[in-house]
Structure formats: C-alpha cells, structure tokens
C-alpha cells in the first residue's frame, strides 16, 4: 500500500516537473541570408530578476522607402519555464521629444522555456528617429 502511494507521488512529481519545464526546440539556417543592421544599445537594468529570466539579445533597425523606421528586438527566455512580461515602446522625434499616441500601451507577451522571439514595431511617423523599450515583469494579483 505504502509502495503504491510512493509510486503515485513520484509519478505525479515527474509529471509536474515535466509540465513546468517544457522548453522550445528551434531550427534555422546555419548561414542566414538576411543581413541584419544591429544597433548598439544602452540598457538600464533595475529589475535584475526579470533581466535574468528574459534577455534582450539584440535590436536591428531598417528604414522603408517612405522613411518610417522599423525595429525588431530579439528576446530570449533564459529559464526552462514559461515567462510572461509586458513591454512598451516610446518613440521620439529628431529633437528628442516624445511622440504620444492613443495606441501606445503596455503589450503583454509570454515566452516558453528557452524560447527566442522577436518583437517588431513601426515608427508612428517619419519624424520618429529614436525609441525606448520598457520591459516590466508580469504584475501578480
């Protein structure tokens, strides 16, 4: 009876561990064709806990024919369990003044364990020359 109970507990623990640690396997070309224009970024880290879990790998930028800036931020979940966070992008004109819009909002995002993903955003106007991205850990109840 005791053996059966222990076996049950062990099996349950294994299932719980497995479901909590599902990570992502990826495949991509060994030599990518696309030429990325990576940006030298400046990071201000105040939440080391979040930075230890979700890491910004790099930012690349491109400008379209109409002069609107496009950014792509590559992020990775360093842990083996799913992680949720929010991010918000702010845009600035050539004088460093913020461009406010009603569409600006904190956007929720989640990543599976060890998953790498890209966040893309378009500048709201061709006057937008700079940007700032804020990452915030998920707020619990």
């Amino acid at each position: 009876m005791t053996t059966k109970l222990f076996a049950g507990i062990a099996a349950g623990t294994v299932i719980l561990l497995q479901s909590g640690c599902s990570t992502v396997n990826t495949l991509e070309p060994a030599q990518p064709v696309a030429q990325r224009q990576m940006l030298n970024d400046k990071r201000v880290i105040t939440d080391t806990g979040l930075y230890g879990r979700v890491r910004i790998l790099g930012v690349n930028i491109a400008t379209g024919p109409a002069g609107f800036l496009k950014i792509q931020v590559e992020i990775q979940n360093l842990t083996s369990s799913p992680k949720s966070f929010t991010y918000r992008i702010e845009w600035f004109d050539e004088y460093g003044m913020i461009i406010n819009l009603p569409t600006m909002t904190a956007i929720p995002r989640s990543l599976e364990g060890k998953e790498t993903a890209s966040i893309t955003a378009m500048a709201p106007t061709d006057r937008a020359k700079d940007f700032r991205i804020k990452f915030l850990d998920q707020i619990s109840n």
């Binding site: 379209g64 024919p65 609107f68 009603p102 600006m104 909002t105 929720p108 709201p124």
Partner: peptide, 23 residues
C-alpha cells in the same frame, strides 16, 4: 480598454509597414 489599444497598435503597425512605408 488596454485590449482596444493593443489591437489598434497592431493594426496601425501593420498599415504603416505594409502600405504606407512601402509607398
């Protein structure tokens, strides 16, 4: 209200990326 802003942001990003910025 934040869902409306999120959806509007996606729509505007897509419009700029696929139509406006492509000329």
């Amino acid at each position: 209200i934040q869902d409306f802003a999120n959806a509007a942001d996606t729509m505007v990003n897509s419009l700029i990326d696929n139509l406006i910025n492509q000329g």
